[in-house]
Simulated scan of single mutants.
Amino acid sequence: MNDQQLLRYSRHILLDPIGIEGQDRLLGSRALIVGAGGLGCPSALYLAAAGVGTLVIVDDDEVDMTNLQRQILHREQSVGRAKVDSARDALHDINPGTEVIALKQRLAGDALLEQVAAADVVLDCSDNFATRHAINRACVATRTPLVSGAAIRFDGQVAVFDSREPNAPCYHCLFPEGGESEEVRCAVMGVFAPLTGIIGTVQAAEALKILAQTGRTLAGRLLLLDALGMEWRSIALPRDPGCAVCGEGA
């Protein structure tokens, strides 16, 4: 680290569980964020501010006026622009030292697997089960830690799925593909604006701990938030031995 970096990240360096070694790990790391919306915006802001070396942000959508209520990287003048371009410009203003790679596309197949394999951590900030399951399969295949978040109405959830750990569950263990989970979207159901900030920031915190190799993550746990009553719950997540993605016969 140079003198400017030592000054900029001094408040992290003062924390014994992070220190210079942990901050160096952040500077040399690469994070993949899928989704530049309500969850992806606060996640990306804190990862960039904390000094993560490379952020790859993937989203195929454009900024809409309805996004501005909660997607805090975007501005009114960004309406109509690609979300990834708007996010890249805002993150450059936050920290020019972080390289932001903006991919305006919907990753799938080999392209998704390639990006996941190149990342040190993946943040799933998407809004549909098909994408979440595709990301999960890629993360299990490459043994890349996955930080998953969701927010709808006043309810949020965060979990970490880390295939590097023995007996760790994956997203499919929690929500089996083709199961009875109901897919709901904020365009229809609505979402409390600060909820996405809370969940996205928790995702960033979990990703930073993984990258800095410190603390205890949410691996094996599901953290639930009822923002209307402001109550948190933590639920243990066991691995499903019969899981079609990470199970013994997968």
Rank of each mutant, 00 (worst) to 15 (best):
E206C: 00
V52H: 00
L6F: 08
F161I: 07
L237F: 06
V245D: 05
A117V: 01
L225F: 01
P176N: 10
I20Y: 10
I33L: 07
A168Q: 10
Q71D: 10
M65D: 15
V184P: 08
R153V: 15
D226P: 04
S86P: 15
T54E: 15
I13C: 12
F154Y: 13
A168H: 03
D124W: 05
Q4M: 10
A150R: 01
D93E: 12
V116R: 00
D127I: 08
I101D: 03
A119I: 03
A212R: 04
R11T: 12
E76H: 13
T214K: 01
N128H: 11
E76G: 14
C170T: 05
P166A: 13
R153E: 14
A151L: 00
E165N: 01
D155E: 15
V202R: 04
L123W: 01
N67I: 02
G22A: 11
A227E: 12
E177F: 09
C170Q: 02
R143S: 12
R8L: 09
R143D: 07
L68D: 11
V140L: 11
L27T: 04
V140C: 04
L6T: 13
A212E: 11
L208K: 00
G220N: 07
A49N: 08
Q69H: 09
L26D: 08
C41T: 11
Q5W: 05
V245W: 05
E180P: 00
S10N: 14
P169F: 09
L228E: 10
I13R: 05
D226E: 12
T66W: 04
L103D: 12
I18F: 08
P169C: 10
A117C: 05
L112F: 09
G156K: 13
T98I: 07
M65S: 14
C41V: 13
R106W: 00
P42Y: 08
S29W: 05
Q115S: 03
V158F: 05
S10H: 09
I101E: 10
L123I: 15
